[in-house]
Simulated assay, not measured.
Amino acid sequence: MRGADAGPGLGVAERPDHREQRHPIKAVPVRHPGRWVAGVAVAVLAAMLVNSLLTNPAFNWPEQAKYLFSPPVLDGVRNTIWLTVAAMAGGVGFGIVLALMRLSANPLLRGASWLYVWFFRGTPLFTQLLIWGNIGALFPTLGLGIPFGPQFVQGQTNALYSAAAAAALGLIFNEAAYMAEIVRGGIQSVDHGQQEAAAALGMSRAQTLRRIVLPQAMRVIVPPTGNEAISMLKNTSLVAAVPYLELTFTAQTIYATTYQIIPMLVMVCLWYLFLSSLMMVGQFYLERHYAKGHRR
């Protein structure tokens, strides 16, 4: 009956509420003046860039629009694309062969692969293309026959050898050296125990490579290969050393007559940016496909 004896002012309601006695914490946010200074600097530089693009007459945007989709430029774009595709297809195929040679137990194969990679990675691509463009001076004739013996078919190198072939071969042989190292690194990233398990199951080395090793190595191989493809797109501009009419060389032939150097070069940059952006999108989806089941 203690509840009945208690007065109206007593009971649970009289207990002090500790929550009401808490005072809110006055948090002072950390100030970052450097961020504001950097943001203002970037905004000013961006405004200056936009102003220059819109007001500088040297860009000559009407001249760029005139030649952007002209037949010579589109031919140069097509040549650039097919050179990139041919160089990457040949470079990847030959690079896989070189990587397997490098991982072979045969010392002659390992040594030959190492020498190839050493030479083509150690010399400039532009110099290699100059040599391919003037290969007729080194080998005046090309023939098919028995080594150190008679030749059954023979012809002049300059008659059998075109500028397109020189450009494609120069890019392929150079790219194969880089792809060999990329593929070798991807294969070595797979745990060797899986190869031993496959051998214990009776699988041959070729079956193990095709079914076990390469599918897992692709996760490591694809990202640098995508970067190599984008780099190859830009490296096609070096085949002017052959010479061959790709995108940059086409622009050079145009401004040699119009004297509009900067507008033509800016137009070429826009084409390269467009093609590179398409390749970057493809690389993203390809990487996501091979990254399934792995933590990114």
Rank of each mutant, 00 (worst) to 15 (best):
A168S: 14
S204Q: 07
A176S: 14
Q252S: 06
L245H: 05
G91I: 04
S277Q: 15
E175C: 04
G91A: 07
Y290W: 15
T248Y: 03
R102T: 04
N134I: 02
I135S: 13
H289F: 07
V77I: 11
V28L: 09
G186D: 02
G186H: 00
V213P: 00
D191T: 04
M88A: 04
F284T: 04
R288C: 07
A180F: 13
I262Y: 13
V12D: 06
L45W: 09
A58D: 13
I172L: 06
E196L: 07
A166K: 14
T258N: 14
G149F: 01
S70V: 05
R288I: 08
L74W: 01
V73S: 03
Y178C: 06
V77A: 15
Y116V: 14
A291F: 00
P33T: 04
L98G: 11
L201V: 10
F126S: 04
V281C: 05
H23A: 10
A38V: 01
W132F: 14
H289T: 08
L138T: 14
P29E: 10
S231Y: 10
I230E: 01
V117C: 07
T141H: 15
V268C: 09
G145K: 06
N106L: 03
S276R: 12
L142K: 03
F284C: 01
I230F: 06
R110Q: 13
S276T: 15
L108A: 11
F152A: 12
L171S: 15
G34M: 01
I254C: 08
T123L: 13
A164W: 11
R288L: 10
Q151S: 12
V239R: 00
V242N: 07
G93K: 09
L74P: 00
A47R: 03
V117G: 06
T258S: 14
A163F: 01
T248W: 00
Q156R: 13
Q216E: 09
G76C: 02
L160Q: 02
V266C: 05
I230T: 08
M1V: 12
P24N: 04
